[in-house]
Each structure stands twice: as C-alpha cells, then as structure tokens.
Amino acid sequence: MEMAGTVVPETAADIVDTHVHIVSPDTARYPLTGGTRDGNDYWSDGSCSVAEVLRVQAVSGVHRTVLVQGVGAYGYDCRYLLDAVAEHPERTAAVVAVDMAAPAAAARALRDLAREPGVTGVRLFAVSGGPDATGPRWLTDPASEAVWDVSAEVGLTVVLTAFAHQLPLLRPSIRSRPSLRVALDHCGFPDARARTAGRAPVRELADLPGVHVKVTTHLLASAQAAGEDPADVIDDLASAFGDERLTWGSDFPQTREPTYPGMLSLAGHAIRRRTQAQRDSILAGTAHRLWFAETASDSSRVVHRP
C-alpha cells in the first residue's frame, strides 16, 4: 500500500516497531496449551517465529522491535519470548505478561520476570472475550495494586491492553504512581466509527504525564476503513498528549493486512503533517525511552530454557 504524502525515514535507526508478536513453530518445546485464543489464529501457518519476523522487518529497514507476549497463543507462559529476546539482545526488548486473575501470584511472578535479560515491560491484559464481555475482576480488585507497585518499583513500562470504556477504572492506579510509565495498547481500541468522540476516554488520561499511546496499524487502518484520515487521528492524539508520548507499532504478524511494508507506508501517511522531530519521536524516540533505555547492560547475557 503506497500512499501519496507518505513519509518514512530512510535509515534503519529511525524506526522502532513497538508491537510485534512471535510464536514458535516448535510446539513441543513451547506448547500452545495455555493460550487464551484471543484474536485470530495468526500462528497456525508457522510463519511467526522470531527469526522470520526479524527477517521481514530487516527487509523493510526496521532493526529494533518490542516483542509483546502473545497472550492468545501462549497465555502467560513467557518462555519463548524470553528466549527470543535473549538470543537477539541488540534488536529486541520484551514485554512479558502475568495472569491478573491471581494478583498476588502475578506480582511475585512479575518480580522474577523483571530480572530476565531484556525485559522492560509488562502487559496487563483486560480484553479477553471482546468489548461486550464482562470486564475482568482485576480492574477493580484492590489486590491488583501489587502488580502496579512492582511495575513502578522495578521500572517496567506497563503496556495496558484495555478497552477505552475500561480506562476510567484504571485511572486511580496510574495517577497514584507518578513515576510509572504506561503505554495504551492500540489506543484503547476506540470505536473508529465515532471518530474523535470514540477517543475521548483516551484523551482524558492525557493529564497523567506517564501515559503514552500506541498508534498501531489496528488503530490507523480501522480509522481509515471508517472514512477518517489517519493523519486526523495522529493530530487529535498529539494535541492532547504531544508527539513525544505517541509511539508506532505494527501488530505484525497478528495483523497481516496490509503487508509489513504497507504498514510502514500507512504509518508514514498518518504522520505526514508532523515535523521531522515529531515524526522521529513517534517512530523511534518514544520507544527508546519506554523500552530500550535499560537494556544495554543486559546485551551480552544469553540464556536458554529447557
């Protein structure tokens, strides 16, 4: 998908993809039995290994990426994610996930996971069953505060995978931890048909300086399909958060359309009205600050799990 007005950086160092999932074809070593099956079955064709994903990105000039735990495939078993990041420390950072159904155990598990090489984020997953399902208990369970506490204490970026209508429930947890960094997955899955109004619950968090927004292929393509110019989405969010709190992610390979080069073109089309410095923030600067600032000391550590 090539678009008039597309602006894509020319050098590999200019782009960080902040939302990629990987699934190993080796189901004996990395079984899929714990997966929640949320989302489409993107992994069944065997083309989602870390080697293949990094190859596709390299061809398009993207050489740094944030690998986000694929809860649909693996649930909260992060072994493949951790092995992949340990094997590719110069190119990747890890966003692990913990099972919030048991918050006390999740907090203990997160503290252990945070010690692993390359782990700089945790995914808190609240979207199982879709937007019409009853929200998970942890959204209002005081025991879940332990996980937020650990995240803030060890300096992890919380990748919040929640629907826009759930965000007000989580505002107190974020507001009470001023140092905590939070990135809203897919901009909270706003209703694309509602355009600006659909993003209102997201903009209402803009006064919390630790909150950042992922402007992903899912968000931009949904807006475009609903008849909204993706540049209007970026302008709307930037007016609330500033460009330095927006960050791009592909959602590859869970999202397959457009192709990976098309996802980059869509991103470039969406940021075409921003200045060069603003584009650099959205495509790389914010990502480095949220997920790569603390990985250098771990880059020589490689571990393998049984």
Rank of each mutant, 00 (worst) to 15 (best):
Leu32Met: 04
Leu32Tyr: 00
Leu32Cys: 00
Gly34Leu: 13
Gly35Pro: 07
Arg37Val: 12
Arg37Glu: 14
Arg37Leu: 15
Gly39Val: 06
Asn40Leu: 13
Asp41Pro: 11
Tyr42Arg: 05
Ser44Gly: 06
Ser47Met: 12
Ala51Phe: 10
Glu52Lys: 14
Gln57Gly: 01
Ala58Trp: 01
Val59Asn: 05
Gly61Phe: 09
Val62Cys: 05
Val66Met: 03
Leu67Cys: 06
Leu67Ala: 04
Leu67Val: 11
Val71Pro: 02
Ala73Gly: 11
Cys78Ser: 15
Leu82Trp: 07
Ala84Met: 08
Val85Lys: 05
Ala86His: 11
Ala86Ser: 15
Ala86Tyr: 11
Glu87Arg: 15
His88Glu: 11
Pro89Val: 02
Glu90Ser: 15
Val98Thr: 01
Asp99Pro: 07
Met100Thr: 08
Ala101Lys: 12
Ala101Ile: 02
Pro103Leu: 02
Pro103His: 02
Ala104Gln: 14
Ala105Trp: 02
Ala106Leu: 06
Ala107Gln: 04
Ala107Val: 07
Ala109Gln: 15
Ala109Gly: 07
Arg111Trp: 06
Asp112Cys: 09
Leu113Pro: 02
Leu113Phe: 13
Arg115Tyr: 00
Glu116Cys: 15
Glu116Thr: 12
Val119Thr: 08
Thr120Tyr: 00
Val122Lys: 03
Arg123Cys: 12
Leu124Pro: 00
Phe125Gln: 04
Val127Met: 14
Pro131Leu: 03
Thr134Pro: 09
Gly135Gln: 13
Pro136Gly: 08
Arg137Gly: 15
Trp138Gln: 03
